[in-house]
Amino acid sequence: MSTNSQDRVEMFRTMVRIREFEERVKRTFAEHPGVIRGHTHLADGAEASIVGSIAAIRPGDQVMATYRCHGYPIALGTDTTAMLAEIYGRSNGLCGGYGGSMHLADPERGFLGTSGIVGQSIPQATGAAYAAQIRRAGDVVLCFFGDGASKQGAFHESLNIASLWKLPIVFVMENNSYSVSVRVEQEDANAAAGEPLATKAKAYSMPGVTIDGGDPDVVYETVAEAVSRARAGEGPTLVESLVYRLSAHGNSIAPPGVPLHYPEHEAVTVFGDVAEYEAAKRGDPVPRFRGALVTGGVLDAARADAIVAEAADEMQRAVDGALAGPEPEPADALRFVHA
């Protein structure tokens, strides 16, 4: 399976849009202090993995993810103004300001939602795959989570059942080597032994593969194969997608009144490993893919620049639209407690 030139340019466009979106979230802390409350988690560095994965599914398929959830809806076509308005807590937000950054949902586009608790969306995605299996329309579920989640019991229980019931699901583990500020080899027996985390698939009689999550072509090919396997009723696959998160785990955590900001990456702040972080920056998947497309003659530099400019304009409109959005009515806090 491979993508044609047009698809690859569209993948690049989506990667750029995600990056621009996340940059605007980050800049909001400095440019509009107090507008974003609580905690945000950015997808910068994982764009190739997200876009390559979602390029492999079709309408009717579904996606569930973690609290680091801004990238997936963009790739699925969700309106970025509604997303940013949600992160700004406005009533024109995607979820009316009820959820915020960690709880985006867009069921019409197959994005069923997220959990703010590590690992807990894995059984939920598995349940959505059970629903898909018995709906018999050939739909598949993509389940995204991080390396830290693979130490949660929910991971073990869900992968066992998904394999046992041959559910149409692809487990995409974005291994960014850090659980907040803990390095993966500090908490994972496989990593400590120098093994890939995809090794864990062995316990479930399930294929497990480890791939370069910085290359959208590789991600697409791998996930597309797993998706077609799932669609054919052959069961789940564990894809370990190696990525590097280019921002800190999340924005700073502070009591109300203290301005929030994005600290430096934990490689630097916790481990003092500037070289690691600089190397990761040099491997940034967005310029890397641009380079591949330009060198390969798929995209010329001027068009690439235009894509970046268009994305910047779109995200400026999103910021403007989100800032202009009204605050919700306080008493609306009592709506939606029950369906």
């Binding site: 069923l112 939920q124 349940g127 959505a128 059942i161």
Partner: peptide, 28 residues
Amino acid sequence: PDRVRVTPISETAEIGMAAGAALAGKRP
């Protein structure tokens, strides 16, 4: 067997899957 299934002793997965299947339109 599509609608009635025995599960392993995996409470987190059982209840989490019920939530996910519910989000996807079922009533477990």
